[in-house]
Amino acid sequence: MASSTTGEKKILTLKGGDNEEFILEESLVLQSELLKNMVKEERVSSIPLPSIKSKTLVKIIEYLKKHAELTPSNKEEFKNFEKEFVNVVLEELLDITVAVNYLKINGLLEFCCQAVADRIKDKSVEAVRKIFRIESDFTPEEESEFRKETPEAFEGDLDDTTN
């Protein structure tokens, strides 16, 4: 299947999890290693991404556009955009991070991972479990022993919120 073209620019359709379609220039998605390979090797013009929520996809496309416009002169503006970009509730940030990892957008992945790390670094163990939807599989004995062995890791005020 050949990509449809308008003038010189190739157009590509991404289909989000809720079947919402996003039409964008093919050049934009080349920042994603995954999509780049699909476009180059399989010559597709429409790519379904059912595991990525449309809301997440909107954010990622927004980033791709901004990143494509990045020049040495608007570097500061881009940095501010990046900061705002990850300023969302943690659940959404994790969705974005997982999607970016899947799409293999390397620069953005590093930025997202750092943002997640910054957000969870002062959280309590219980809060981290909730955020990542993890049930503890330690016995209470194992847990209290661990806390006893490394008391310094549990000192100070820890944040119990999940946002």
């Binding site: 969870i120 670094k121 993890i134 503890s136 599989d137 890791a153």
Partner: peptide, 15 residues
Amino acid sequence: RLPTSKTIRCKLVCK
């Protein structure tokens, strides 16, 4: 990307 001291606490999240 967490500081080392924080990764120790994260060990307790799950196995």
